[in-house]
Write a protein that binds this DNA or RNA. Sequence first.
DNA 1: TAAAATTAAATCGCATACGATTAAAGGAGG
DNA 2: CCTCCTTTAATCGTATGCGATTTAATTTTA
Lengths: 148, 148
Amino acid sequence: MDKYECLKLKNQLCFPIYLCSKEIIRKYTPFLKKLDLTYTQYIVMMYFWEYNESNVKELGNKLMLDSNTLTPLLKKLEDKGYIERKRSSLDERNLIVKLTSKGEKLRDDAVDIPSSVGKCINLCSEDFVALYSLMYKILGNIREDYNE
Amino acid sequence: MDKYECLKLKNQLCFPIYLCSKEIIRKYTPFLKKLDLTYTQYIVMMYFWEYNESNVKELGNKLMLDSNTLTPLLKKLEDKGYIERKRSSLDERNLIVKLTSKGEKLRDDAVDIPSSVGKCINLCSEDFVALYSLMYKILGNIREDYNE
DNA sequence: TAAAATTAAATCGCATACGATTAAAGGAGG
DNA sequence: CCTCCTTTAATCGTATGCGATTTAATTTTA
């Protein structure tokens, strides 16, 4: 029995998760390119399609990203005309971010993407459900503060 | 029934996988810092602890990374003294990368990391196995060329 | 109420990722 | 032998990701 067995790549759980995340994102890329979005920008747009308006803090909680990543990303989305950034007049520390009408319209172009990528991943619904719940179980274990 | 339902974050599979990958890597960080490694550098070191020697192509196939990512990363590992880079004399196109003795010794410092992080993730063994096999199933579906 | 503590975003620096291109070496065919 | 094709790394440019610090606004507290 090799005492280094635990360090072999095939015995890692993190490694295939890391690969899956990257490869799934790679599958999104050609579809997102048509909308002039990167994957992270797409996640942010999904947030706003659902909630319409937010600030950096709230958005960051949901996406587990901080202002160091979000600030430049939101500026890019603003340059593309998909969102609007404005300081709150009630509390100047807060940056209000909201969809523009152009950003809203983009939703119709995105609506087929999940199923297109789903076909590439090609999991039966049992596997989908099992994987989904395992992912949220891990997230719950790692970040007890995270509420879906 | 909302026609945009499929675009909600909570209905995505990619999103929790993306989060899990990032958060698990975050859990590794404090342990890896003691070895002066980043997560990707750690994956590369695991490869070499297992196979001792390789070239950029082979390594990249296994890790699903290309020379654009690996070349600078391998130079950093060389600067740290963990690996050696040398052109093959048989075929000058190939870069032979191998562990140094310092890199080999590092393995002993890494051997407790998987279980330490495993405690944070805190999955029972059934969940571990289920998740592991789902991940490789997806990888097999996405990249039929990938052989573990 | 003025100084201290807290909060929210922005900024900085470094390390990936990765599509695309380039450069250099080796191999194939005329 | 020479040109074309392929292969392997390296390089380039853009976009995250994130620990750490800074800046500005607000709140707390002495």
